[in-house]
Design a protein around this nucleic acid. Structure first.
Lengths: 350, 350
DNA sequence: CTGAAAGCGCTTACAG
DNA sequence: CTGAAAGCGCTTACAG
């Protein structure tokens, strides 16, 4: 158990100074402040009440908090079952709600009694993760990757499976394939799927068509909307790759509503983190990842990094995804065949 | 801010004794122990690190923990948004994982730095809620009711709306209505729905048939199973009231799979806490409650009970549910009409 | 079984 | 801006 006394000797200052730094009191030089904070993380310091030390793991959004999706629920389930096997408790933290001005992330987390943090991120808050990691505070990013910095993360790589999914559609005879992408969140996940979409089309010598890109938020009504949009096009697609589970469900049900037969009139390749593919009819062909496992593993990987001198090597794990072919994909119907682009012309252009 | 000094004077003991009680040290008489714990709750005591007091609200299962359902996710979303407007943080707690032998709930929660607790319960763990409430620790039960004890709770009453739902089915002409009930969990919720089922049938002079009761766990595959069971009966029902969202989704999709037309061959009246009714096709007729709001209100109601001398009056709030008629209920088809029971005979028996 | 007192972790006026 | 020292909350041998 590290006390401020140990931190003080490690940083070569008095215990009074350590205390000031921890409480973000004004009147500590920037130099000393940084030195102390480094020692704090090196020693695995945490505030002690008598003999007791709090041992919370935090679960935090770096941007605006938005728990409530099926993905979050599955993560939560995984975290909770890992928690049952550990000595740590889990706290939901809003990183920005009460982090004080000028306070470092380490100071903030320690003030909360938090010894490690699992982070959700978006493209816009990647710097927050990098900052936390740089401070040396035990942290692990869930569901995004950091290849050029030593940020710890675990990630599901959906690129190669997305390729497989696209190749499945192409093999079925589809040439006009739309993409519904929720890259408003802008994480690596969605970037992977976008790249897979484009690469697979290029490899099959199918021309990309800007009109077939649908950038939408990640809600169910957005799925209904894209179906209405794409089906009112002069040349509707015969298949669509929907990169978000909720959007995929919304899209599928809108097809039923409009009398668009799936997969005869439109094949739907979806995405699933949990079991939404089984909650629709027909069961959805989807690129699948196991969010429950992601949560479980994240907790297990971060736990040992808590405490003294344990944070040595960088954790950068990538899990696989898999393609599950169910009832929403099939050959394009002959009725739609007239929309096939002129392959001869395209091959030349490629 | 209460310290052990204040608790000590309130209980007329030394601070050493208060400390022993809080740490559940052996060698404190039962009498003194109880007196101190009462003072602890009366003073709203919480362990202090220097000037800082932890302020966590716990979210806890009284039985085995099982976060991960759509219901939990919606509750979590509600809790998180209430948390954003408060000064408290939320911690997931496994009540039984590390509660020590002989330790009271108050001792356990304080050791964790928790100042109030939101409880999930089942019939078998109602005594845990009563115990916590008796100790005087700020607690609120979510989704169950306690009419004969002063336990704080908030609850969604689904009885009258379940009646409405059943009356809707009866008005459509259904006489042979099955019940799929997940009362293995045994909370008031499911008891309400069972009563509503039976009362509405009795009021319509329809004889209860034990063969039409399906007691199942609350998972999606159970829904598929009950459809296979009921459709292989000599006299299948023309409608079913499914009292759990996941089971309802499973049932609906199994109908599609088996070619049972909904609502022509079978009407499905479901239940929904979130938006699963919109995630299936046709959108499901359902008794609805708003789990997100439940979570939000629970947090808001418990928060002011934290601290000194604030826990005065009992919170026992009941929220309403509503019936939403969508596409899964309709008149029984003439083909099935032959299964109508002999109404003349039944009226006599009644 | 209980209290007075020593002691630890932390914070904060006070001194320089 | 930093440290020595007083002081608070809590715990724990020690005494009875």
């Amino acid at each position: 158990m590290s006390t401020i006394r140990k931190v003080a000797s490690d940083a070569n200052v008095s215990i009074a100074t350590v205390s000031r730094v921890l409480n973000n009191n004004p009147g500590v030089s920037q130099d000393v402040r940084n030195r102390v904070l480094e020692s704090v993380n090196r020693c695995g310091y945490v505030a002690n009440v008598g003999r007791r030390a709090t041992s919370f793991l935090a679960w935090a959004y770096t941007g605006p908090s938005s728990w409530g999706s099926a993905y979050d629920a599955a993560i939560c389930e995984g975290l909770a079952s890992a928690m049952d096997e550990s000595e740590l408790d889990l706290v939901l933290l809003n990183v920005h709600r009460d982090k004080r001005a000028g306070e470092s992330y380490t100071q903030f987390f320690l003030r909360k009694g938090v010894r490690g943090v699992l982070l959700w991120t978006t493209k816009r808050t990647r710097d927050v993760c990098e900052q936390i990691s740089e401070e040396g505070f035990p942290a692990l990013v869930l569901g995004d990757k950091f290849e050029d910095s030593p940020v710890d993360y675990i990630y599901c790589d959906s690129h190669s499976t997305s390729m497989q999914g696209m190749e499945h559609l192409i093999a079925l005879g589809h040439r006009r394939i739309a993409l519904a992408i929720s890259d408003i969140i802008e994480d690596s996940d969605h970037a992977d799927r976008l790249t897979a979409y484009e690469t697979s089309l290029r490899e099959a010598s199918i021309e990309l068509d800007r009109k077939l890109y649908f950038h939408v938020p990640a809600s169910r009504p957005d799925g209904a909307q894209i179906i209405r949009s794409m089906m009112s096009m002069a040349e509707p697609p015969t298949a669509v790759f929907v990169t978000d589970p909720s959007v995929a469900v919304g899209a599928l049900n809108e097809c039923h509503k409009l009398g668009i037969s799936v997969p005869d009139d439109l094949s739907v390749l979806g995405f699933d983190d949990t079991d939404v593919r089984y909650r629709v009819y027909p069961n959805m062909t989807a690129v699948c990842q196991d969010a429950r496992r992601l949560g479980y593993e994240a907790f297990k990987l971060l736990s040992p990094n808590i405490g003294e001198d344990n944070h040595s090597k960088t954790i950068q794990e990538t899990y696989g995804t898999w393609l599950e072919i169910n009832g929403t994909t099939g050959q394009p119907s002959s009725k739609r065949a007239r929309f096939l682009p002129d392959v001869t012309r395209m091959a030349v252009e490629n």
